[in-house]
Design a protein around this nucleic acid. Structure first.
Lengths: 333, 333
DNA sequence: CCTCTTTGATGAAACGTTTCATTAAAGATA
DNA sequence: TATCTTTAATGAAACGTTTCATCAAAGAGG
């Protein structure tokens, strides 16, 4: 059986309390005894049991990351930012994907496994939509990333402004304007609303220029490459060139670009495409896009969460990053 | 404060043990008392604390999923298969990405947080390479998916045969043969070796046909679209047409396809491309590929893990799925 | 030398459960 | 009616820690 703190205490010839104090770096322990305890720990290969530890202390040194789905590059970058920040303080994280009714039911139990962590990071998720009563069923700190709520600390990028930048850029170009967005209505509970915001900003830019986005020029699809590819083909089949297309994320933009290349039309001349995100490959395919600082968002959110865990009681934090337009050849020049 | 089992017992007018038995569906409780307890639970909004529960019972109703990185579609499908299977038995899962030295250190503690779960699923990871001593530091059940080890239950696809199928298909076509693979040497500890196997099978097919893969025709890159795109451009610049290219996964194949389209060459005629995986979009871009049943693998691995958790002590399980060649127009006809 | 503080260690209670040995009550058998 | 089973409930111990109130020993001050 695994050694317990009792075995250590016995071997070192001290009491439980003393071992515990050594484990927790409590200064009130004689150097001599500390050595004895450390030797016993090493000799037995003892490691404290985190669950047992958390019972009296109510601390786990863990945070829980909730996110809607896994297979998007966005979350890879975000996670990198989070993990870097955690490594400074020896915290670890577990990831809990939220994408089904079943998961949601399980997470509405205030004693659900994930809520035993010291803090929660909700990524691209809005508690108001997810939970009955509109809040995460825990008293522990909760921080939102890539999502906004006026009840929680929120770290996000100014999506409306991002869409606006895209719009401003496209209205200068000749040709009709199309929008490829992500339909958030079907799964409204798992949606963060960021795509709707990008669209709003985009439409505002058009309106300011006295232009109007036609319903027939708007396509709402799933968040994946191949639906965008399909839509791209459909658009190019009957469009009057040149055409200007805003896709609300780079993955969709990629689908459009692919359709353009298939069709033999010239990207940046016949068809202009602008995306949103600026993922690693966006530069390689010359995609004009609106950049958001994903890793920084993850980092910032983590810092705030860790502060909250160590009893930061200041009023709600809200950090809004500014997006930046990156012009490449998919919109000509 | 949250209600505890004591509060329930008190309100229901029974002992702790009785409440516990109700919670665990132990039949030895009088219906009348059961009702009292259930009412008290509902009235207090009581939920058992999973950590406290796990202390005496050593059960969490959780499994831990370890995987090397997040942003690949492969893991999305796999997770779907896993989660479906879990939902039947009311198990939940947490995900632990393994990609840095730091993570590895933290996971070599036998009492690390993830090992408190009832079982571990190691995805695309080989314990022998990850841990000193060559095994996962836990006594609880461990099952490997998309990876092979003769020490653990292993669920995987026959990658050698998959590569062989790709090779057999390409050698029938005129033109030189290229291989785009993933360099596993840099991060050998986090690698599963599947790409090497695909390559071996591929080369075997060539050898059987008296052909030989030239070193200058092999490219080892990172597992991402844009490195493949870059390599694709490089190849097409100087290649003598026609060219036949095997990419060890669809994501890389996609990069090559993209390069082909940019170049204006004809896919399936000037340049033939075959991938591996058969992701959702592969059909849409007409990519010939070797299909592996990702979801099924996840499902099967989960079933086995759950059996192990409920004390299946039969000898080591090994399930090898057969890959299937899917011919589409990226290899002509 | 006596008292007062400080330092470090101790033992026990607590955290929220499960589980086990025990007991009480009820039913069955003779 | 007396004994034997069965059923259901109880109380306490256990799981592996932290923490708190208490205590003993040592050092300081007069």
């Amino acid at each position: 059986m695994k050694p317990s703190i009792k075995d250590v205490a016995h071997l070192a010839g001290v009491s439980l309390g003393t071992v515990s104090r050594v484990l927790n770096n409590n200064p009130k322990v004689k150097p001599e005894n500390q050595q004895k305890v450390l030797r016993a720990i090493a000799q037995l290969g003892y490691h404290p049991n985190p669950f047992a530890r958390s019972l009296p202390s109510n601390k786990t040194h863990m945070i829980s990351i909730f996110l809607p789905l896994m297979s998007s590059e966005f979350y890879g970058y975000l996670f990198e930012g989070i993990d870097n920040e955690l490594s400074n303080v020896w915290y670890d994280s577990s990831i809990y994907p939220v994408f089904s009714k079943r998961r949601l039911i399980s997470y509405s139990n205030p004693n659900a496994f994930p809520y035993q962590s010291d803090g929660m990071l909700f990524v691209s998720l809005i508690p108001e939509r997810l939970f009955e009563g509109g809040h995460v069923p825990t008293n522990k700190p909760v921080v939102l990333v890539d999502a906004f709520s006026d009840k929680y600390d929120s770290i996000y990028v100014d999506n409306v402004n991002g869409g606006y930048l895209a719009g401003k850029h496209l209205i200068e170009k000749p040709g009709e304007i199309y929008l490829i967005s992500i339909g958030e209505e079907r799964n409204v509970e798992f949606a963060s609303g960021v795509f709707g915001k990008r669209r709003r900003g985009f439409e505002r830019a058009l309106e300011e220029a006295g232009m109007h986005l036609m319903n027939s020029h708007v396509f709402e699809i799933g968040e994946n490459f191949w639906e965008a590819l399909t839509v791209g083909r459909k658009i190019l089949q009957k469009a009057i060139l040149p055409v200007n297309i805003f896709a609300v994320c780079d993955t969709l933009a990629m689908g459009i670009v692919e359709a353009v290349k298939e069709s033999g039309l010239k990207l940046g001349i016949d068809v202009r495409v602008i995306g949103f995100d600026d993922l690693k490959w966006s530069e390689k395919i010359g995609l004009t896009t609106v950049r958001q600082p994903i890793m920084e968002m993850g980092k910032k959110a983590t810092t705030i969460l860790l502060d909250r865990i160590s009893r930061d009681t200041s009023p709600r934090h809200e950090v809004c990053f500014k997006p930046k337009l990156i012009v490449r050849k998919s919109t000509g020049r």
